[in-house]
Design a binder for these strands. Structure first.
Length: 496
RNA sequence: GCUCGUGUAGUGUAGUGGUCCAUCAUGAAGCCCUCUCGAGGCUUCGACCCGGGUUCAAAUCCCGGCACGAGCACCA
């Protein structure tokens, strides 16, 4: 049957799994311009990481450019932080491994936006509206025009001057884009483009009295930068529609637009920069790099690898579904990247000191153990056994016969362990341990939700280099935070 | 309420009319290997929101439900 109707269906290839990002619609190699536009009111979070990764990856794929644009046109509700510009640039660079192709700040391009606003008023597709927000909402919800809508260009332009010279106070006037009050979607009806803000801006002070809103500023700037593809959250779908109406007025062509849905990480919930800022100010967290926080700098500090993060976001891809993923998934990506370059070290929590007794009174004075079990890293760790005292984890003492990893089968008797064989003779449990001469006190800090859990123990004192990630055998990965010859080793937990 | 969007295993994701009793990752369970509870290898578990329709054939197209999410700020 099938042979008659559709013969080629019979020898079609099995569909293969697409890897990497989907093709960008209407994209020509070498001509793609993308943008990533954060508000500089804090450093980048895991949520931003998606935008950074997807945009820069598409730029790579199409030999395109990424514009990093600081959307800092609100100094009141989400005031910019002066340092955040720098933070974001460095977070971006950490994650992508390179600088953005273009960096601009909306606040330094204000003259341009105001010029376009004036043009809009002069050409009659915008107007200065003096209704209160509440009044306008009421009119808009009933598809009614407000009386400001039919002012002449001259009247609008003179009101515009009053807005700009500071004669009109905050909240008394707003510039609207004329669309139509009959649009089915109320959000699009004569939407506000610029409003008055007299508050001080951290970068340009009180130079401007009128500031554009996101939809206006972003629309103008995307045009000016020649942005060909906008990739944004789907919560901004109405922005696309508003901006498209503005582009029609200016007779410009709107970029291709793609959307992603909302991402939550089980362990963190959603990412609110302003929320974190408050908590840091209140002292709930110690700073933007507090290991409990989902900021990129906190993740970087803990030892997450930028390439692993990138792999993770590309694997999630670009879908409009709202998703909630587990940190475990990111950790799995991270482990696969870092494992082969992490040396092993012993860390004995809840340590118990015991005497060790060798066979026939003979004893070994040193022991060589691989830095990495599959020799991704050459060389050995040398352990000194001369003192004949070792640390074991209390819970491992419950078993009576265990094997000290990389050393010997032993029997546990009260405060003593005695070697039965250096060869491995049976399948007894293998535990990690530490000779006293190699042990240094260590504190492992584990972020757990909103809390910090501290575990004390004895750490293998062998080439502990600040900033390096080690795998604590039978425990998990951690980063060394203390200086190289500290008396107490500070470890920060990464993951299992 | 209005407007918009999304529904594939526990969690993500591939797949846009046939070879799909549906891909891959992660997860869980188990096994092998390894002197780590790590790495590697293998096995198993587990999904097309529901109901109609179109068609020889539907995860895929159409209609209707339902569920979830977002926008309806002089925030971004």
């Amino acid at each position: 049957m099938l042979e008659e109707t559709n013969p080629e269906a019979l020898n079609r290839q099995k569909q293969i799994r697409r890897t990497g990002l989907k093709e960008l619609p209407n994209a020509k190699k070498g001509e793609v311009v993308l943008r990533f536009a954060p508000n500089p009111n804090g450093p980048l979070t895991l949520g931003h990481a998606r935008g950074v990764t997807i945009n820069s990856e598409y730029a790579n794929l199409y030999d395109g450019k990424v514009v990093l644009r600081f959307d800092d046109t609100d100094s009141k509700v989400k005031p910019p932080i002066k340092e955040a510009y720098r933070w974001i640039e460095s977070d971006y660079e950490w994650l992508t491994g390179k600088k953005p192709d273009v960096i601009i700040r909306a606040s330094e391009r204000m003259d341009i936006y105001l010029e376009y606003a004036e043009k809009m008023l002069g050409e009659g597709f915008g107007y200065v509206c003096k209704c209160s927000a509440a009044e306008f909402k009421k009119l808009r919800d009933n598809s009614e025009e407000c009386s400001c809508r039919n002012k002449t260009e001259q009247e609008n332009l003179s009101d515009w001057i009053l807005m700009n010279d500071g004669s009109l106070g905050e909240g008394t006037a707003v510039v609207r884009v004329k669309t139509s009050v009959n649009l089915p979607n109320p959000a699009l009806r004569d939407w506000p483009a610029l409003r008055i803000q007299h508050s001080l801006h951290p970068m340009v002070g009180n130079k401007y009295k009128v500031w554009p809103l996101l939809d206006f500023q972003s629309a103008i700037e995307d045009y000016l930068q020649g942005v060909t593809h906008i990739i944004r959250g789907k919560d901004l779908m109405d922005s696309t529609r508003k901006q498209t109406l503005l582009y029609e007025h200016f007779d410009w062509e709107y970029p291709e637009t793609l959307y992603w849905g909302r991402v939550k990480i089980h362990e963190f919930g959603s990412f609110s920069t302003s929320g974190m800022r408050k908590d840091i100010e209140k002292g709930v967290f110690n700073g933007w790099d507090d290991p409990r926080l989902p900021t990129l700098r906190a993740l970087q500090r803990r030892g997450f690898d930028a390439d692993a993060m990138k792999d993770f976001w590309i694997d999630l891809g670009l879908t409009q579904k709202d998703i909630s993923v587990s940190l475990q998934t990111i950790e799995a990506f991270n482990s696969s990247v870092i494992d082969e370059r992490c040396e092993r070290r012993a860390f004995v929590r809840d340590p118990e000191l015991l005497d060790i007794e060798f066979i026939d009174g003979n004893y070994l004075s040193t022991l060589s153990i691989k830095r990495h079990p599959t020799s991704h890293i050459e060389g050995d760790r040398i352990w000194d056994l001369i003192d004949r005292k070792i640390y074991l984890e209390k819970k491992d003492l419950l078993k009576k016969e265990i094997r000290l990893k990389d050393f010997a089968d032993v029997e546990i008797k009260k405060q003593k362990v005695s070697v039965q064989s250096y060869e491995r003779l049976d399948k007894r449990a293998i535990v990690h341990w530490l000779p006293i001469s190699m042990a240094k006190k260590a504190i492992l800090t584990i972020p757990e939700g909103d809390k910090i859990v501290i575990q004390e123990g004895m750490m293998e004192d062998f080439e502990l280099i600040k900033g390096s990630i080690v795998q604590l055998e039978r425990v998990g990965y951690a980063i060394i935070e203390s200086e190289n010859n500290s008396d107490i080793i500070q470890l920060l937990w990464l993951h299992g």
